[in-house]
Design a protein around this nucleic acid. Structure first.
Lengths: 340, 340
DNA sequence: ATGAAAGCGCTAACAC
DNA sequence: GTGTTAGCGCTTTCAT
């Protein structure tokens, strides 16, 4: 079989304990011995069994990440940030795709729990109770979601979220200043915690300006759902007066763009469009998409940090800011008027 | 600490051995006993330690996947397919992003090797020798890459690839039939095995038709590199007569599209454009991208299958086919002529 | 049908 | 500074 620490010890002529010490850099081993052990280890191409080590130390050097859809660029960036931060510390990453399904998510939690030091749940679809329960297995970090139960937070729970308020407020102000008087928000799935934050931020910002807000819900946060919504928006824009739409995320915004186009509407000529996440490279969309930018990657890095040093109960926050590009324009009704 | 099998055994009033047998469904345990054990396990919310189990059985129930860039939709789909297929069998997935870096890839192989039953290397940047070496640690499945050494394949190596020939040949024929006489191929990174396959397929198809092919190499397979290439193509199109470009993948095609646009070129009016992978939902790009379609997801599923049942030395093949959409059009020089 | 005991590969007291 | 020993939680002979 594979070479074990025993063969290394034998080859170096020392006991297993000494070999272990030498390899793990314990100071309690004289240099000459260490050299011999290391030499033997190299010669035998020895790689310590993480399994055995974990079993005895109680720490696995792995963390588990569960997300609703690996395919979504937001989670993909999140994962990239997380993996990079963790990998730099030589921590392994176990992933699971819950497919937005709470049962599957729970199974993943169970399956992973015995082989990771902590769990990162991104946009978890679990109930608050289930999340608290998971906490008793392993420390968990909730990403892009916060518990809403008023009781105090479980000790082993961390939270990292994106603060959508500044970005969404800026988006509304931006559109308003361009003369848009009726906004439509194309939301993501109803269970989404971040969707709710976005609705709240928009509602607040709109009512501060006395602007009406139309909210359209969807079942998935992807291109297809956006496209359907886009077609509907186009069909009803004449009646409801919508001249600007804000989407739950960039994928959906792309869909809205496609749907609008198919209905013969021009962006930004007929309607302005704002996405969210800044997950598309500038210029990838045409016209380049104005978006509420935030860094999913930074969120992933923050989650990694939080799972590594669980100190502090306050939620980690990633800011947002509006990134104005070419998909928003002065409202038609407002054109010809002097530009600010 | 967590509840172990010992507590379960105690609660059920049986020995650890019996508890183990009962839980793992051994027939050698009478039903009444099994019921008691299972009940106790449920009552204690027992989850067996995968670590301990792995240590004794020698099988971990995990596989490791290493890919060059988690952020790339191609790998993302690949990963989704792999994870779905493996997860259905209750197999865990450890991921690592090599960042196109062979050293990092090798470190990941090492790190994972002791906690997985097999390794899937997607578009590996390792040398053939290094791959063969990895084989001695764990069974490996190479995805989107094949060994080129003429010697016989290592016993524990599987290969799954995309057969680019039909799709790329069709692309060339398609463009040729539209009257395009000078094609440019915007390639991916030089180390890419699949890039080479694409070059070969294109060269073959072009020479069969007597068409010249211009090849442009890049260092990364992303949007930015594509955009740069697009600008260059636009600048030189007048001299070299290029009227159609084929890109290494859809991301790059999107970049080429952006670069072309920035240079004032219209697609498909001035130049036709073909992508590869069909990783963009239809309509996501504007104009909708003609592309050499293949299923990265299917490749992932095939890789999962291959790592699970390592029988057979023949490489698994995923076919490609041309998907014609709106980014390709009759060459300007050819317009007005009767359409076939 | 069940229990006792060995041992997977490793680390961590505890001796010397 | 190094060796001996005891386990981490589990599965698996081998007895009974």
């Amino acid at each position: 079989m594979a070479t074990t620490i025993r063969s290394v010890a034998a080859a170096a002529g020392v006991s297993v304990a000494t070999a272990s010490r030498a390899l793990s850099g314990s100071p309690a081993v004289v240099d000459s011995t260490r050299r011999r052990v290391i030499q033997a280890a190299i010669a035998l191409d020895y790689t310590p069994s993480r399994l055995a080590r974990s079993l005895v130390t109680g720490s696995t050097g792995n963390v588990g990440v569960i997300l609703p859809d690996i395919t979504n660029p937001f989670y993909t960036s999140f994962l990239a940030g997380l993996e990079a931060a963790l990998g730099a510390q030589d921590i392994g990453v176990l992933i699971g795709d819950s497919g937005e399904n709470p049962d599957r998510e729970n199974r993943l939690v169970r399956r992973m729990s015995t082989q990771v030091d902590g769990l990162v749940l991104a946009s978890s679809r679990l109930s608050d109770e289930q999340i608290v329960a998971a906490t008793s297995r392993r420390p968990v970090v909730l990403a892009n979601r916060m518990l809403e139960t008023s009781e105090e937070l479980p000790k082993r729970l961390g939270q990292v979220v994106i603060d959508v308020h500044p970005g969404f407020t800026a988006a509304v102000n931006h559109l308003s200043s361009l003369g848009h008087r009726q906004l439509t928000y194309v939301d993501g799935p109803a269970q989404s915690w971040s969707g709710r934050q976005k609705r709240i931020a928009l509602t607040l910002a709109c009512s501060a300006l006395g602007l009406p807000l139309r909210i359209r819900s969807t079942t998935r946060a992807d291109f297809g759902a956006g496209r359907t919504a886009g077609r509907q928006v186009a069909a009803e824009a004449a009646q409801d007066g919508t001249t600007a739409v804000i989407a739950f995320n960039d994928q959906m915004a792309l869909g809205v763009l496609a749907g609008l186009r198919e209905a013969g509407k021009d962006v930004p000529g007929d309607l302005s469009l704002v996405g969210c996440d800044d997950s598309l490279e500038d210029g990838l969309a045409w016209p380049a998409l104005t978006t509420v930018g935030s860094s999913a990657r930074a969120l992933g890095e923050l989650a990694a940090h939080k799972i590594l040093n669980p100190m502090g109960q306050e939620a980690g926050l990633i800011p947002t800011a509006l990134i104005v590009r070419d998909s928003t324009e002065r409202a038609r009704s407002d054109r010809g008027a002097p530009v600010a």
